[in-house]
Design a protein around this nucleic acid. Structure first.
Lengths: 124, 124
DNA sequence: CTCTCACTTGAATGGTGATTCAAGTGTATT
DNA sequence: AATACACTTGAATCACCATTCAAGTGAGAG
């Protein structure tokens, strides 16, 4: 699917294209990064992270907070865990989940900073 | 869809649940935050951002770099623009895109830090 | 004012992924 | 060992969204 862009300024592209490629991240890193953000790009998962911000919670409690079935919650927790965003700890029959580390809180805080900044611009 | 969790330790939940709710973000903020991360959770869009890290590029050049059609690129640039991640500038017939601000670079850097940290742990 | 170029927009399509239902683990309790 | 509980896992369904194709702007050139 080549671009049907005339050669008129093809050389200008060539230059820019080189620039664009030069510092671009390698494919694998980019894929990992994308996958990471994709995990954060889901309402249910973000709500779970938000709940876990202060406290550790068992799956049961999370499901109650979300008003969703245990199964659905478990599936999402699996995704969060694979992305190293949460950790789990077993105590008897119950499994407790926590945020993996402060890194997660930082990233969420940065996201918040971004959207708040933009909201401010729109108001101005 | 209530949780079929016995009342055995319902009171323990109640406590945890309150904790979980107390500092949780309000629904609208959470929705905006989720939407923001969702935009970053796409391979094509991340590649575009990666290309724009150093240089401004016209749609045509981006399409060439991606090996995709102009139309597809334009659609994605629209999404990125609505999320305030990129800005556009018209010069004659050509439209040039740039990263909106350094904020974007910071967020991507934080994402990279996270996945690199985790990669390190797995190696150890 | 017509034509081409660079891009945008709208409608249709196809693939991905979140949720559900049903069945399976693991851990205590009796 | 049998039952109950807290959770996990797999298969199926359904909605959403990225891409494509086709048509529509806007700006300069002839």
């Amino acid at each position: 699917m080549p671009v049907n862009c005339s050669d008129a300024h093809a050389h200008r592209h060539a230059q820019a294209v080189q620039q664009g490629q030069s510092h671009a991240l390698d494919a694998q890193t980019l894929a990992r990064l994308t996958a990471f953000f994709k995990v954060l790009g889901d309402g249910t998962r973000m709500r779970i992270l938000s709940f876990l911000a202060d406290t550790e919670l068992c799956v049961c409690a999370i499901a109650e907070l979300l008003g969703m079935e245990l199964s659905a919650v478990s599936h999402q927790l699996r995704v969060l865990k694979q992305a190293d965003l949460v950790r789990s700890r077993r105590e008897g029959k119950t499994v407790y989940y926590t945020l993996a580390d402060d890194h997660v809180r930082q990233i969420i805080r940065m996201g918040l900073a971004h959207i708040n900044e933009k909201r401010g611009e729109n108001d101005a």
